[in-house]
Structure formats: structure tokens, C-alpha cells
């Protein structure tokens, strides 16, 4: 399979690989996918007092396109408010990375990971507020 230059770039120099402390109330963690399906993504966000995502990290078990999709997702959510981050669509990722049809599920997983991280953060905030 021929990979696009952007996929290769993210694969060779992934952005924001790593982990944030998942017990931190300002950190939201999303883990999506399953090992038996061949891809698992973990995406984390740290949200500032102003409601803006200050930091994002990922770790991905999956093909090059899955790694690139999650790497791109961390770049895109940084600097966005929660509402803005929630508007990122998998189709945007497909377009940016020039993913072939067989790799669209990688972008879907990345969108799911963003949503899962946002949901986790909101649940934690609600728990602390309550």
C-alpha cells in the first residue's frame, strides 16, 4: 500500500506521544478500539481553567494510518475549547491525511477517541462539582 506523505510524516515523527496523569481532574482520557480488531487508541487532554485544551497526548496500537490519525487528532484538539474539539469529524482527518477507503475506520477511531476523552473530562468535572 502506498502511504501519503502526511501519513508517513506522522508515523515517522508522531506528535504528542506519551501519557498525562489519568487521575488528574483536569485530564480527560479516552481509550477506544480493541486489541483483537488490531487497533487501540488512547487519547488524553489537559484542560485549562479557561476551558481550553492546553495539552494532548496519545498512544496507539494500530497500523500507520491509525498512528497518523491519532497523532493528527492531538495536534488539532490543542488550543481548542471543548465545544470546538467536539466538532472535529473523521472526514476532516481522512481529507487531511489522504486516507484510502480501507483506512477510513482509523479516522473514525480517532474521532471516537476525542469524544471519549472529552466525555471523561466532563464526567470528572461533574463528579468534583457534585
Amino acid at each position: 500500500m502506498a502511504y501519503s506523505d502526511k501519513v508517513l510524516d506522522h508515523y515517522n515523527a508522531p506528535r504528542n506521544v506519551g501519557a498525562l496523569p489519568k487521575d488528574d481532574p483536569n485530564v480527560g482520557t479516552g481509550v477506544v478500539g480493541a486489541p483483537e480488531c488490531g487497533d487501540v487508541m488512547k487519547l488524553q487532554i489537559r484542560v485549562g481553567a479557561d476551558g481550553v485544551i492546553e495539552e494532548a497526548r496519545f498512544k496507539t496500537f494500530g497500523c500507520g494510518s491509525a498512528i497518523a490519525s491519532s497523532s493528527l487528532a492531538t495536534e488539532w484538539v490543542k488550543g481548542k475549547t471543548l465545544e470546538q474539539a467536539a466538532t472535529i469529524r473523521n472526514t476532516d482527518i481522512v481529507q487531511e491525511l489522504n486516507l484510502p477507503p480501507i483506512k477510513i475506520h482509523c479516522s473514525v477511531l480517532a474521532e471516537d477517541a476525542i469524544r471519549a476523552a472529552l466525555a471523561d473530562y466532563k464526567a470528572k468535572q461533574a463528579a468534583t462539582a457534585g
Binding site: G33, A34, P35, E36, V40, K42, K59, T60
Partner: peptide, 19 residues
């Protein structure tokens, strides 16, 4: 993330995956 979990002592078979 799987390697990270295994290093932390998580048994991957017990995780409730969102497949």
C-alpha cells in the same frame, strides 16, 4: 497503549474494550 497497560500490570483480557 497495550504495552503501557501491560507494564502497569493490567491484564488485557480483563479490559472491557470498546470494539
Amino acid at each position: 497503549p497495550l504495552w503501557e497497560m501491560v507494564q502497569e500490570g493490567v491484564d488485557l483480557k480483563t479490559v472491557n474494550w470498546v470494539g
